[in-house]
C-alpha cells in the first residue's frame, strides 16, 4: 500500500515584523520597518498511509498547525514538497479539495445567523453531494453526534460544544478521504470530548479515511492514534508508536491532591515523588500501573479533601523528548 500523504523536507518561514516597545519604538518601526524571517517548520518529512490515524503532538508554536495548513493547501511551502492523494495541495484543485477536510477549532464555516441545516445544504451543493448520499451521511452524523435538537436552531444560539459538533458534521458531509483535525476538542467538556473521539474513530473504521489530528489533550491522542508524530521547534523529533512514546517518556501519571490540612512534603514523598507543592495543593508522580494503589494508600493515610489523576501535560512529555530539563528533576535539584 502506498502512502496517501507524503511530506518531503518541508520548510515554511513566516515574515514577522519586529516591533519595539513605546511610542518612539512605534515611530521607528513606522519609518523603517524591520522584518524577520521566522522558520515555523524546518525540514519535516513523513508519510501517512490510508486508514491511519496519526496524532500530531507538540507544544504551542511548534509547527503543527502550519504543517496541517500546508497539507490542506492553505499555505505555500517555502521549500520542500507535499503530495496528498497524488495532488500538490497548494494548487487547490477541486478534486483534491473534495477529498479532504480540515477542521480548525471554531473557524466558522457555519453561517452565524442561520441554522446548521442551511449551511449543510450549501455544503451539499458546493461539494456536489448527491441527495441520497447527503441524506445518508447527515443521518449518520446526526445520530452519532446527537445533532437532532440543534439542527434547526440559529448557529448563534448554540453552545460552544454544539457548534463544534456541527462544524465537524459540516466538514464531513462530503465524505472526505483525509481528515485534518486541528484541536477538534478544544473548549469542549469531557463528555463532548469523548463523543467527538468516538465519532472520529468510528468514521475511520467505517470509511478507511486517514486522520491527522493535533491536540492539547493527551487523552485525545491516546484514544485515537497508534502512531504519533512529535514536532518541536519546527522539527520532527519523534515518529512512531504511541505506547512506546508514553512508556519511554511519560511513565508517570500526575496525582493532584487538595489537602485538608497542611502536610509536609516529606510525608507525601513516602508514597511517590513530589512534583509540586504549594500550600494545600500537591502533585505527585505515580507510575502508570500503580496509580490506583498509591491513591488509595494516600486516601487512607493523609487528610485529603480532593484527589484527581491526570496525564502528564503534553508539553512535558515533549520536553523530555527534546532533552529539556523536565520539571521533576528541577524539583529534585532544588530540594537538594
Amino acid at each position: 500500500m502506498s502512502a496517501i500523504i507524503q511530506l518531503d523536507h518541508l520548510c515554511k518561514d513566516y515574515e514577522v515584523h519586529q516591533k519595539e516597545p513605546g511610542l518612539m519604538g512605534s515611530l521607528r518601526s513606522f519609518v523603517r520597518r524591520k522584518y524577520q524571517l521566522v522558520p515555523a517548520v524546518k525540514d519535516v518529512s513523513f508519510e501517512i498511509e490510508q486508514g491511519e490515524i496519526v496524532g500530531f503532538l507538540g507544544p504551542n508554536g511548534a509547527g503543527k498547525t502550519t504543517t496541517l495548513k500546508v497539507l490542506s493547501g492553505l499555505l505555500y511551502p517555502t521549500s520542500g514538497h507535499a503530495r496528498v492523494l497524488g495532488f500538490t495541495p497548494h494548487e487547490r484543485k477541486a478534486d483534491f479539495l473534495k477529498s479532504i477536510t480540515m477542521v480548525m477549532g471554531q473557524k466558522q464555516q457555519l453561517a452565524w445567523d442561520m441554522t446548521p441545516s442551511d449551511s449543510f445544504l450549501v455544503n451539499q451543493a458546493i461539494y456536489d453531494v448527491s441527495d441520497a448520499d447527503f441524506r445518508r451521511r447527515l443521518g449518520e452524523l446526526t445520530e452519532m453526534l446527537e445533532l437532532q435538537p440543534v439542527l434547526n436552531k440559529p448557529v448563534r444560539k448554540l453552545s460552544l460544544g454544539e457548534r463544534m459538533k456541527c462544524e465537524l458534521a459540516g466538514a464531513l458531509l462530503h465524505g472526505p478521504k483525509i481528515l485534518f483535525l486541528d484541536e477538534p476538542t478544544i473548549g469542549l467538556d469531557v463528555n463532548m470530548q469523548q463523543a467527538v473521539r468516538r465519532f472520529v474513530a468510528d468514521y475511520n473504521v467505517r470509511t478507511g479515511a486517514a486522520v491527522m489530528l493535533t491536540s492539547h489533550y493527551m487523552a485525545d491522542v491516546e484514544a485515537l492514534a497508534e502512531r504519533v508524530l512529535v514536532i518541536d521547534g519546527g522539527q520532527l523529533v519523534f515518529d512512531g508508536n504511541l505506547s512506546a512514546l508514553v512508556a519511554e517518556r511519560a511513565p508517570n501519571k500526575v496525582l493532584k491532591l487538595q489537602l485538608a490540612h497542611p502536610v509536609s512534603p516529606e510525608r507525601l514523598s513516602v508514597f511517590a515523588p513530589v512534583r509540586m507543592m504549594e500550600g494545600l495543593t500537591a502533585e505527585l508522580l505515580a507510575p502508570r500501573g500503580k496509580v490506583a494503589e498509591i491513591a488509595s494508600r494516600i486516601l487512607n493515610d493523609v487528610p485529603v479533601a480532593d484527589i484527581a489523576i491526570e496525564d502528564m501535560p503534553i508539553e512535558e512529555v515533549v520536553g523530555r523528548l527534546f532533552q529539556r530539563k523536565p520539571p521533576i528533576e528541577a524539583v529534585r535539584e532544588a530540594a537538594k
Binding site: K19, L23, S26, L27, S29, F30, R33
Partner: peptide, 12 residues
C-alpha cells in the same frame, strides 16, 4: 492620543 497613535503606526 498616544495610545491611538501607537496603534495607528502599526498599520502604516
Amino acid at each position: 492620543i498616544r495610545a491611538t497613535v501607537q496603534v495607528q503606526l502599526e498599520y502604516r
